[in-house]
């Protein structure tokens, strides 16, 4: 029973981690319908920028954090301006392959600069956050993730629901020509959504780096893990992303704990295919009505 509860807690914290790392992905998809294969690399860029600033340049943590966020915000702008904008209106597969190419470029550069080793941040989280119930314990990083995750999800929810930019983004995602004809500045929406997504990615990358250590391969692998998480919940729903994250996290820890550790990596994908067969737009995705 204790084992079960510990797995449950681990699964939920892992799920929140996945949901947090999926936020930037959902952001881009919600506004521009681009499936971003460079997501893991964006996480890694944020994490490494923070690493370089905090350990190499020895900036104070707060300053390093702020500079990282500004840096990734600008990077998002640059990516959109120079790589994605020429492709507006092109085929889906070409946009996908462009992000795959970007992923290879970023990964190559990061490996070239930082190597394939695991780096770690200086310890700056307060220790008092860790929780303990009987034999079950939650380390403080997970508690911090949980809190950061909840805060961000709430901010995101309000942003998309009430702010004018959020509403523009939803309108562009829903119907680009219609949004254009109603006076929405579509290019600005794209640029802004990439910039915000890169910023959120940097944040999630830093959290992931605190928990697992900063490593290019691990972070880009998490970029692939985002797909089942996001698709399971439905690509355009943030609440779905949380639920998807928690489902995938629980599936992984329970198969890892009770069946076999090697099956752990594949189970999310098997479940994903089965769910997609029953509900083609994910659990909470918007069903598109198609007309010829």
């Amino acid at each position: 029973m204790e084992f079960f509860l510990q797995l449950l807690v681990n699964g939920i914290s892992l799920g929140f981690l996945y949901a947090l790392s999926a936020l930037g992905f959902v952001m881009i998809f919600k506004s521009s319908s681009v499936l971003n294969f460079a997501h893991g690399e964006l996480l890694a860029i944020g994490a490494f920028l923070f690493l370089a600033l905090s350990t190499w340049a020895k900036l104070p943590i707060i300053l390093a954090f702020a500079v990282t966020l500004i840096g990734s915000f600008s990077l998002g702008f640059i990516i959109e301006r120079f790589f994605l904008r020429p492709l507006i209106g092109e085929e889906l597969i070409e946009v996908i392959m462009l992000t795959v190419g970007l992923a290879a470029m970023f990964k190559g550069l990061l490996l070239f600069i930082f190597g394939g080793d695991i780096h770690s941040y200086p310890n700056f989280l307060p220790e008092g956050l860790s929780m303990q119930w009987g034999a079950i314990q939650i380390p403080s990083v997970y508690v911090a993730t949980f809190i950061i995750g909840i805060i961000f999800l709430i901010i995101f929810g309000f942003f998309f629901k009430y702010s004018s930019q959020g509403i523009y983004m939803r309108s562009v995602a829903d119907n680009q020509p219609a949004a254009l004809s109603l006076g929405v500045h579509v290019r600005r929406v794209f640029a802004l959504s990439w910039a915000i997504a890169a910023l959120v990615c940097a944040m999630s990358g830093i959290v992931l780096g605190i928990i697992n250590g900063v490593n290019v391969h691990n972070l880009s692998a998490i970029g692939l893990k985002v797909f089942p998480v996001v698709i399971l919940g439905g690509l355009d729903s943030i609440g779905g992303a949380i639920l998807g994250g928690v489902i995938i996290g629980l599936l992984e820890t329970f198969t890892g704990g009770y069946i076999s550790t090697s099956l752990r990596e594949v189970v999310p994908y098997i479940v994903l295919v089965l769910i997609l067969m029953v509900k083609p737009y994910g659990l909470f995705g918007l069903v598109e009505i198609e007309r010829v």
Partner: peptide
Amino acid sequence: PLREFVFG
């Protein structure tokens, strides 16, 4: 790693 970069 630059191989991957050039490929991308």
